[in-house]
Write a protein that binds this DNA or RNA. Structure first.
Lengths: 376, 376
DNA sequence: TCTGTGCGGTGTAACGATGCACCAAGGTAC
DNA sequence: GTACCTTGGTGCATCGTTACACCGCACAGA
């Protein structure tokens, strides 16, 4: 296929392949400039590009980093993937993208596969509570950087993490609502077992306690016990939560903090299904600040994650061969972005304004549940 | 690193490496079952996994397909990328994802690089009018499948395309609005030079003509001449279009078809900026049916692209070694999804309801322009 | 007994780049 | 003069897999 090899370059430059290889790999200390120029000229003229497969076979290394996200179908992860690629491109790396769909087994398989492919390291976007399923590969030397999942007690030492301070984020969201005067608040999220959920929820609770509200007295949405909602269905979680919270017998909340923007948007949709208005009837605060947050009607108040900076940081952690403190967590400060989905609570509480238009078909399954109960 | 090689397997099974290789590559016709079982047992016991780099070096082939999208930051492409990965996973392939940001040069570089990496083929999501910048690589044997870009006259013969019938899509969108009684309609899109834009716009015009409306007499949004809006900024295009169309001196449209959902959503946001209501004041029809279309308030009427089927088809075209008719286009039929962003036009035209709340800061730059003119 | 042939595998030379060990030539030092 | 160093490179084995050519064997037909 007309592929140019290092031999051909060597011949053209009248040197040995080794010398060309030396140049290619920056071992130029003891190389006379004239030689170097000859080789460079030959490379340019022949349009030589080193064969990656051969290189990798020989060295065992790559210029690729793996990225595992729950699903690029979710705009937040799509945006993050894009930022990581931008960062990688700048340093001549490429990114191999995998969707774990939050399935630990699938996550493990991908990690294993990427490792066998010889990636430099992996940025793992997972919020699974443990990394036990990956301990093997990490022990064998994989550079693993977790994103959006601060290091946990049992994690392997070499794992580095980059994320926002979820506690602060949850606190910002919660206190934004309490400062508007809300006193009945709910935290909505799909899975209970995710790490960032815990942080955000704690922050939320802290915000309530700061104004002498009792988190355990709030209307609670416990999510689905065993329904494995994918990231794309995050919105559906929110929507169902809205249906459940506002059709029960209990007095509903006047404000809600959602685990992420997709869930928040779904929640807004659920409110709308019931004829309630976001902002004026019920305040909603999201998390992430995806592009659509600003686009939504009303524009969504949310907690912004600085994904571009985080992507750059995560990539740096993967690539830096230098002295990296093992087990460190980089925590960035999130930022509250106030838009129009949050407002003071309506006087007299949330109106009973469910319209007849609620179509049962809007709910995909029947698995809706609400529970009261103590906050864990 | 404890890597198991084919030699070790061979030794364990008491055969030669060649025989193991034969099994691995399905050349089992003249292999006695006992041998086969011995080898399989050895593979299982040692946990052998073939080394991809070595394999690729030897054969020049991979189990990877390239995917080039404008930007995974855009939910439509994110969703498509995910579907393609699902399809690829099912046949044991992996997907290498690249964001072209609609830059032809970047597109070319990626294609070149993927080709050098030995991908089986590339699914290119591009709507550039020509493929000239890729003619080289295609001529050298690259299997290229374009998505969302029907084959054009000058395209290389071997290029296959998978897309919806944009003309039908545009027609469905347009005639949905005319059948609701709209008589002043506008088509909104960012770049004018994209292939699918042409198809959709023609379909839109056909729909107008079908009810004796003159497309050239409609309020026209010509987009930006040279502003290279990325895919993530598609929404911004729509928003600016709304600002321009509804603040000019000309009588504004009562209905709008957008080139895609992100632009439609941006347009809705722009309407809102001016105190206009989507659906009741102005009807908006999008294109793609991204998840957010259903989530939006009001839910967006749109033209659905069957991305899962399209992804599977595109992958098939990349992988099928069989008899493929060169230069063929697979056109799928899009589907109109009616939601609540479209309704009959308001009696008495669009109300002058711009509120004082329009903040100049909502517009990022000053580059807004509208032009009247003949339809090309 | 000799040739032919089908069967079930094996031997071996690549694929392209790398990097260690080595080398020839010239310059000191004593 | 010889021992030794520095300079500027080169030779060669090697990474793990593949695929083509070939091989020994058994049995059939003549």
């Amino acid at each position: 296929m007309g592929r140019v090899t290092i031999q051909q370059v060597a011949k053209a430059a009248n040197v040995s392949p080794s010398t060309v290889s030396n140049l290619l790999n920056g071992r130029t200390e003891r190389m006379v400039p004239a030689t170097r120029e000859r080789i460079e000229a030959a490379i340019a003229e022949l349009g030589y590009r080193p064969n990656r497969a051969a290189r990798q076979l020989r060295t065992g290394r790559t210029q690729t980093v793996g990225l595992i996200v729950p699903s690029v179908g979710n705009p937040f992860w799509g945006a993050f993937a894009r930022e990581l690629e931008v960062a990688a491109l700048a340093v001549g790396c490429s990114v191999l993208l995998c969707n774990s769909e939050r399935d630990p087994e699938r996550e493990r398989r991908y990690v294993e596969e990427l490792w066998e492919d010889g990636v430099r390291g992996i940025v793992l976007c997972s919020s699974l509570p443990t990394l036990d399923h990956l301990a093997d590969v990490v022990a064998r030397g994989l550079r693993l950087v977790t994103f959006d999942r601060p290091a946990q007690p049992g994690d392997p030492d070499s794992v580095v993490s980059v994320s926002i301070d979820n506690h602060v984020g949850g606190f910002l969201a919660g206190s934004h609502l309490t400062s508007l005067g809300h006193e009945r608040l709910t935290f909505v999220s799909g899975s209970l077992a995710s790490v960032n959920r815990t942080g955000r929820f704690r922050g939320f609770c802290t915000a309530l306690e700061a104004v002498d509200l009792d988190p355990t007295a709030m209307p609670l949405w416990t999510g689905f016990e065993d329904t494995p909602f994918g990231d794309v269905e995050a919105a559906e979680v929110g929507r169902r939560a809205a249906h459940a919270l506002f059709s029960g017998t209990e007095e509903p909340p006047t404000g809600v903090v959602a685990i992420n923007d997709m869930t928040a948007l779904g929640f807004c949709r659920g409110l709308r299904d019931q004829g309630l208005r976001v902002g004026s009837d019920v305040s909603v605060v999201g998390f992430d600040d995806i592009i659509l947050a600003d686009l939504y009607d009303p524009p969504l108040t949310t907690i912004r994650q600085p994904i571009a900076r985080m992507a750059a940081l995560a990539l740096g952690e993967v690539l830096d061969d230098g002295d990296r403190e093992p087990g460190r967590s980089v925590l960035l400060r999130p930022e509250l972005v106030v838009r129009e989905s949050s407002a003071p609570p309506p006087v007299g509480g949330v109106p009973e304004r469910r319209t007849a238009e609620v179509r049962a078909s809007d709910l995909r399954a029947s698995d809706v549940s609400t529970t009261d109960g103590a906050v864990r």
